[in-house]
Design a protein around this nucleic acid. Structure first.
Length: 537
DNA sequence: TGTGCCGGGAC
DNA sequence: GTCCCGGCACA
């Protein structure tokens, strides 16, 4: 009972422990006006329940089927609420406010309909079956009551019938419930267990949530997120509170285990989705302390940067010393031809992510930044730099063939540079052979860092910008040819790069065109002292 | 010195 | 996100 959540659902079927029926029902029935949907309990076995709200009557209808096959249904207007004080639930049962269930939700919910005006149907069917994962019911849809046949023989009026699969709960019927009290207990218990079911939460969140209720649900769900140890949290990624403490995908959480064991393929699929979510976070988050030591080749006209010392040594041996790259023999000479540099991987990733259609922070192998062949645009003295070598350092990969166009194509996405078409050469020197960062030694990942970037330290490598051919750029420093291994600790931080600045455009800008007196006529960028968007070069 | 605009702060 | 401005580099 440590996690009580309001759930965004109008129809739910689930098994709950019979042991908790009575308690759950008490809580539900006595203290939950407007909160009928969320009573906590453990999910063991015993009853399936479907609950729906009626948009026409405002009543909540519950249908349940016991393990023994008996079934029944009731509404919030009769059986479930009869004889109960519905207005003081939270006072009577303060525990209902724990875990963001009662209090917080109640503050947002002015009434029952806030919580229950839901429209999507969810029906979990254990034993590997699933009636209908997500069925959508319009708010105006007549009440769904499943078979509509209660154990009391009460036939739901035809207008309330709805032959929806979600109401189908395949449990054998063998025993009748003792009465309304039992029903209420079961219903509350079911709702309780639902609040702890990650699967339900997942389905709830991923389904088409009615606007009225989604916000409240999200809030409550996110508030109680930390109390759950597993689950597939795939709803709105903008909810920043959710990913803060992501749960391990392979938790031993009992409810998860239950779901995994009882839902078969669906559970597996769900698990994979969870993994997908956790490891393919659509929103790349900043990593802390992400400085990475890179190794830069100091050979003249070669500014290759590799992520590993062995890689740079191999590079030097292979391309500069003319030795067999596969040979591990080293006399230490190559140590003089490279230096260590520190690279802010965050900024580098950000910069490069804008150059590639898919974010490098996504899951999968370490990011390999495709090289851009300088030969495709400008002559280059060392075409070998453009080859993305395989683990053996020899075989060019497909990336090396397809990357250049990609890299050049998306280079226009920067906000203030988007309109600056004149400064978007298809291959600038910055694209000079980025071959990979952060990859292991298995792949001889390397990237030819743009001189601007390397000169542009100490700052993070966010200066991956468009540079036009006509831009004045700092000539390659002759110190690069110095055969000196520069320790990182003693290497003086170079001044911010000169020439990284965007070249001043030839066209008149808003200031010149309109003058200071007509500043309101300037483009926004000019007003903000940004690169003019109106008069681009 | 005027201008363009980057980087960063305030909101 | 918008809005503003300090400060730098360039003409």
């Amino acid at each position: 009972m440590n996690s009580k959540r309001l759930l965004d659902m109008s129809t739910i079927g689930i098994r709950v422990g019979s042991a908790s029926k009575q308690a759950g029902m008490d809580q539900h029935a006595k203290g939950s006006k407007g909160r009928e949907m969320g009573v906590a309990a453990t999910a063991d076995s015993g009853v399936f329940l479907a609950c729906k709200n009626s948009s026409t009557t405002g009543a909540i209808f519950y249908k349940f089927v016991l393990d023994d096959g008996s079934s029944g249904e009731f509404t919030s207007q009769d059986s479930i609420l009869n004889g109960n004080d519905l207005s003081s639930g939270s006072e009577k049962y303060p525990q209902l406010n724990k875990g963001g269930y009662g209090g917080e939700a109640d503050e947002r919910s002015s009434g029952r309909t806030d919580v229950l005006n839901l429209s999507h149907t969810h029906c979990l069917v254990p034993n590997g079956q699933e009636g209908d994962k997500q069925m959508h019911l319009e708010a105006t849809t007549p009440l769904v009551t499943g078979s509509c046949q209660t154990t009391n023989g009460h036939q739901v009026p035809p207008e309330e019938k709805y032959p929806h699969p979600s109401s189908y709960i395949p449990v054998p019927r063998r025993r009748k419930p003792s009465g309304h009290a039992d029903k209420e207990v079961m219903a509350a218990t079911v709702l309780t267990s639902l609040s702890t079911s990650p699967l339900v939460l997942t389905q709830t969140a991923s389904a088409a949530v009615p606007e009225l209720a989604s916000k409240g649900w999200k809030d409550v769900l996110s508030a109680s997120y930390s109390s759950s140890t597993s689950g597939n949290w795939s709803w709105d990624a903008s909810d920043q509170s959710v990913p803060s403490t992501p749960s391990p995908p392979l938790s031993n959480d009992t409810s998860k285990s239950y779901l995994l064991s009882s839902h078969g393929d669906y559970a597996i699929e769900d698990s994979s989705e969870s993994t997908h979510f956790l490891f393919e976070d659509p929103i790349p988050r900043k990593r802390k302390n992400s400085m990475k030591v890179m190794f830069k080749c100091l050979w003249k006209n070669c500014e290759k940067v590799l992520s590993t010392s062995s890689g740079i040594q191999r590079h030097i041996r292979t391309f500069h010393l003319g030795r067999n790259c596969e040979s591990d023999y080293s006399d230490g000479e190559e140590d003089f031809y490279y230096s260590e540099i520190q690279v802010n991987m965050d900024s580098l990733s950000e910069g490069l992510s804008s150059l590639t259609p898919t974010s490098p922070t996504t899951a999968g192998p370490p990011p390999i930044f495709p090289p851009v062949s300088p030969a495709t645009c400008v002559p280059h003295s060392e075409p070998s730099h453009i080859v993305l070598r395989g683990p053996q350092g020899r075989t060019p990969t497909l990336l090396s063939q397809s990357a250049p166009s990609t890299l050049c194509h998306i280079r226009t996405d920067h906000a203030y540079q988007a309109t600056d078409s004149g400064s978007i050469p298809m291959c600038s020197a910055q694209a000079d052979g980025i071959e990979g960062i952060g990859n292991s030694e298995g792949i001889s990942g390397s990237w030819q860092a743009p001189p601007d970037i390397l000169k542009g330290f100490p700052g993070p490598l966010t200066q991956i910008r468009t540079v036009s051919f006509g831009e004045k750029r700092q000539p390659a420093p002759t110190t690069n040819t110095t055969i000196v291994k520069t320790p990182t600790s003693t290497a003086p931080l170079p001044k911010p790069a000169l020439g990284t600045r965007k070249p001043r455009g030839e066209a008149k800008k808003c200031r010149k065109v309109y003058g200071m007196e007509k500043r309101d006529m300037w483009c926004t960028a000019c007003r903000w002292k940004k690169a003019c968007q109106r008069f681009t070069d």
